[in-house]
Design a protein around this nucleic acid. Structure first.
Lengths: 359, 359
DNA sequence: TAATTTATTGGAATCGATAACAATAAATAT
DNA sequence: ATATTTATTGTTATCGATTCCAATAAATTA
């Protein structure tokens, strides 16, 4: 009764500490701590009494104080290249779910595809005392990563295959995915295929490699896949309209575009339409990522599906394993396989070119 | 030189503490702390010496220790209803940007539109010691909010207009937005309009109010806007296909659907198409939110645009102001105005009904 | 009965910072 | 020359937990 009265008087946010619990239970803080940490050697009666008071007072140990003492925060950092990009937000969901399942929290940074912000975010996170972090980097500096590794700070890369010792990652097999896409186009009869994408970005570099190698394997000569720099705006953003106009004007009879990601694909289709041509009738377009909108646009997009949720989930799980088990130095590298999703943005081209059908 | 040698020997992650800095500089920890906290009363020579050593040792104060002592973590929590929903991820970006601008970090929780997870998240965040948090709640329990308020824990609601004393929010004016949408449809000649959306959700409730009131204002009788429960799956998810089939079968000559959000609108259009009808020829559909895909789908969606980034940014800024300035108890309620975005999913219906054109 | 284990508990140091208060030396006023 | 201010710095307690080590009481063994 008295305690209820006291409670109702309490207006501002006051915290119960372990000291109070100890006093109320007539034991030492040590004992309360023991009760808290599960089972050590505490007498059953004592334990019950302490637990009762803990419950009554709704005592929760201060995570901050615990962190200071134990040097673990049960927090991991997540550096997202772009939270608004559905690819990354799905990855983030996987990360958050995996973290929460193990009673960890996630501090989120958004690097905005900016390598400088990315480094700032990494610094912020380490200073803030996260136990480890996950990095979805898009154009990473080798030095930064090596530095992190050498400091012994636990981290994993997401969707960034960097094969240097002591660096772990969970990635989609971009090379294989690009093979899938390219083979698909080739089987539809395409030979003049343009690869659209910023090859500075790690995953796009892999996709481009897969593309090139596949063409070679089929003995198809393909030249000039370079986007003139004048179409690349600050921050590596492409002027898709400009690129498409340029491609069409080159009169090279390009029959297909392999867009490095679905965003580029969607924009390309728009641009192609704006130039009076149609997809897939005049030009086939294949994307990469299978983001949600790719099935919803005017011409549902043929693309490569990547396990995104899994990417985040596995990465987080691997990181947490490392954290729970600091000694083990074994390499943790997971490579996930993408799949082809055929929709309607690519069509077969054959010996006789079908006449354009107009509605 | 010696120190460099030492550094290169250091393999694991070792932290420099204020104590070491103090010893190296030949001053007390207090003095170092003073230097750190900007300008107190420290002799310029001393300060310079300390700063030099801080720089040399790359010393960063432990945020955990600071937090414990000062009872401030420079961390805010963000409970997102669904990080994968582009609406919320844009909001999140606004929040993160505003927080980082003031040197705060964001701990992200994803409540998955689940009210139980939401409460768990709130608990997690308060226990973790965030300074305050932002809540994008979708179906909140009044009790939870009142409880938080009574405990004096700083928080703000995002896009959830809850007018009880001591509760602050930044919201879009859903009522007004719904007025805009409804008026637009009415001006196009629609009278039989169906409102599609879960009216348990706060913002949808507001939209429905705006919808109803506008119809009344135009003296239009509208009945039966209730979705039969059999089409509502667990978690409040709608079986849109079922609903649309049901609507069409009712033979009530519905000419327009006001979808409570763009997702519902997009799905509705798909469902309508699947039933052999066309948008907007047979049925007009207006959405709400103006998410990215709404302009990219087959029939670009007419919808209501909401300032999403601003929503998050302002909410975070308000919260931080509260945190920096604990004494001020003034109400912080911001109401943002949405706008109509006309695209192609609605058409005028007139006296003579145009014959269906087929391609 | 004395000696040794075992079970249970508490004291005090510690994690890395901040802050109230005290202390000293130098500068100024009387 | 003495008293009082001012500038600068240090001492120590504290935030809220954990943990090493010691202490006590009870139980067991010799």
């Amino acid at each position: 009764m008295v305690s209820m009265l006291e409670n109702s008087k309490k207006t501002s946010f006051e915290k119960v500490t372990i000291k109070e619990i100890a006093e109320l239970a007539g034991v030492s803080r040590t004992t309360v701590s023991r009760v808290l940490s599960g089972s050590d050697f505490v007498n059953k009666n004592t334990r019950d009494r302490v637990l009762e008071i803990i419950e009554e007072k709704e005592y929760k140990p201060s995570i901050i104080a615990q962190s200071l003492r134990t040097n673990r925060t049960r927090t991991i950092g997540l550096v997202l290249a772009d939270i608004e990009n559905p690819f990354y937000s799905r990855v983030a969901k996987g990360v958050i779910d995996a973290a929460e399942a193990k009673n960890y929290n996630v501090i989120l940074c958004n690097s905005n595809n900016d390598i400088n912000l990315e480094e700032r975010d990494i610094r912020t996170l380490t200073e803030r005392g996260v136990d480890g972090f996950l990095l979805t980097t898009v154009e990473l500096k080798m030095k930064t990563i090596e530095n992190l590794r050498d400091k012994g700070f636990p981290f994993m890369l997401i969707d960034c295959k960097l094969d240097i010792p002591g660096v772990n990652y969970v990635v989609n097999d971009d090379y294989y995915g690009a093979e899938l896409a390219t083979e698909y186009l080739i089987n539809l009869g395409h030979k003049k295929i343009f690869f659209l994408g910023n090859r500075k970005l790690l995953s796009l570099r892999e996709r481009f490699r897969g593309f090139k190698d596949t063409l070679k394997r089929y003995e198809i000569n393909n030249t000039g896949n370079f986007v003139p720099t004048k179409f690349i705006k600050t921050g590596g953003i492409y002027d898709i309209e400009g690129i498409i106009r340029y491609l069409l004007s080159r009169q090279e009879n390009i029959t297909a575009i392999f867009a490095g990601n679905d965003y580029l694909a969607v924009k390309s289709i728009e641009a192609i339409n704006n130039n009076g041509l149609k997809v897939p009738e005049d030009i086939s377009v294949i994307g990469y990522d299978n983001i949600k909108i790719s099935s919803m646009i005017k011409v549902p997009l043929t693309t490569i599906r990547q396990p995104k949720y899994l990417l985040g989930k596995l990465a987080a799980e691997q990181l947490l394993e490392i954290l729970e088990n600091k000694s083990d130095k074994k390499a943790r590298r997971v490579i996930l396989r993408p799949e082809l999703v055929t929709r309607q943005s690519c069509r077969r081209i054959g010996i006789q070119k079908l006449e354009e059908r107009r509605c």
